[in-house]
Amino acid sequence: MLELKNVNYTVKTTQGDERPIFNQLSLSLVPHKLYGLLGVNGVGKTTFLNLISGLVAPTTGTVAFKTKDVYQSAKQRRDYLDQVGYCLQNPDSLFFNKTVLDELRYGAGAASVENLIQQFALKPLLTASPFELSGGQKKRLALAIMLKKQPEILLCDEITAGLDAHYRQFVLDLLKQYKRQHLTIWVTHDIDEAVAVSDELLFIGHGRVQKYPILAALRQPAIFKHYHLRVPSQAAISKALITQGLFTDQQYYRSNQEIAAAITQIWKLR
């Protein structure tokens, strides 16, 4: 549904020379999936989201949504932007109203404001300025604003950074639910969290974006190392149990619950 074809993206450095960020990037992303975007700092995660958000056009190549070239005309781009919800890494850039309530009321979809206030537990914050909120509260407000228009594509840049365990779980559950009907892409530095929640991983590095299903990636920790990422703890735990002969070669799991269930299973059988 979202199709990148031969995308090149180059930036000019301060020295005046051109630095390629993405090189002949071709990728196809579909709805009903949650894609976890992984890569080290400075590799282009935010740039990738900007390219597919309709905000930044590639130097060459096309980004197409439902076969329509997003950047072909100003109108096409506007139409596309209406269907994208993009939670920026710095939520301050999204806010411009005096109060949290005004921020929520702004734009179409006023009917859903009450629900959002309830769902995101924003009631105590309604009269506060969005800029005075704590880091975690800002992330919550940004997500609430983006969900108001129920975008077909939801992009979240480090949405869980700085959230406490309670709201982290809340946001993760929300992403899992949202992706059932939509295309959702999120960036996180918490590799364990990315593995536990995403359907597929998008690795960014070396000018490319590579797509892997979760279990395939867990079985080959070398992939993570190739992109200079930490091996997920789920993979490390499985690997340790396999080395001890307690798990078989193929027993890799996405979450702690699944690992615990597998151990329980073995315990009962023995």
Binding site: D164, A165, H166, R168, D192, S233, Q234, I237, N256, Q257, I259, A260, A261, I263, T264, W267
Partner: peptide, 24 residues
């Protein structure tokens, strides 16, 4: 205590706790 304070739980500890709860 970690959960009561909205802190993340280490994976190894979470698995052991889940096993305990399953009666192992």
């Amino acid at each position: 205590v970690l959960e009561a304070n909205q802190l993340p739980v280490p994976d190894t500890l979470a698995i052991i706790t889940a096993l305990k709860q399953a009666g192992l």
